[in-house]
Simulated assay, not measured.
Amino acid sequence: MPVSASGLKDAVSKGLLREEQLTPLLSHLRDWDAAHGQQPRFDFTHLLYYLGGLIAIGAMSLFMNLGWEEFGGWGIVGLCAIYALAGLLLTNRFRDKGYLIPAGICAAFVLTLTPLAVYGFQQGMGWWPDDTVYREYHRHIKFLWIYMELATLLAGAILLFSYRFPFLMMPVAVTLWYMAMDLAELVLENGFGWQERRMFTCWFGLGITLFALWVDIRARRSLDYAFWLYLFGVLAFWGGLTAQHSDSELNKFLYFCMSVSLIGCGAVLMRKVFVVFGAIGCCLYLGHLANEVFKDSWLFPIALTFIGLGIIYLGILWQKNEQDITVSVRRFLPASIRDLLEARHG
Rank of each mutant, 00 (worst) to 15 (best):
L48T: 11
Q195F: 08
L168A: 02
A81T: 01
M258W: 07
D43A: 11
T209Y: 02
A59F: 03
F192Q: 13
E20I: 11
S336F: 10
Y119D: 00
C265E: 12
V110F: 01
G75T: 08
S6N: 01
C80Q: 00
I337M: 03
R338N: 14
G233Q: 04
F204V: 13
E19A: 15
F274T: 03
G239F: 09
G87D: 03
G308P: 06
M148R: 08
T201R: 06
M125W: 10
D33S: 14
M258G: 12
L235C: 08
K252N: 09
D339R: 13
M148N: 12
T152G: 04
L100F: 03
Y163W: 08
P102E: 04
G104H: 00
T23C: 07
I82G: 08
L29E: 04
A219H: 12
S222V: 06
E249V: 09
L304E: 06
S13I: 01
L144S: 15
I101Y: 08
A236E: 04
K9Y: 07
K14A: 09
G37L: 10
W194K: 10
I316R: 10
W32G: 10
G104M: 05
A267P: 04
E196I: 03
A236N: 13
A151R: 01
D131G: 00
D224F: 03
G346E: 12
D324L: 10
V268D: 00
P334K: 00
I337N: 04
S246L: 02
G156W: 02
A219V: 10
I311G: 12
V187L: 13
F200C: 07
L286E: 10
S222G: 09
G7K: 04
P115K: 00
I158V: 15
F204S: 14
F44Q: 14
E292I: 12
I263Q: 01
S4N: 05
V275Q: 11
D10V: 12
L48N: 11
F71L: 14
L289T: 06
P166N: 06
I208Q: 11
R164D: 04
A151L: 00
C80G: 01
P102F: 09
V12H: 01
A219Q: 13
I307F: 11
A335S: 10
K252Q: 13
A279V: 14
G264C: 15
L309G: 06
F42S: 09
P115R: 00
M181G: 06
F192P: 02
L286I: 15
R338M: 14
A180P: 05
I146Y: 09
Y134D: 08
S261C: 03
K320G: 08
N321E: 14
I337G: 00
Q195A: 13
D247N: 07
L309T: 06
L188T: 05
G278K: 04
V275R: 05
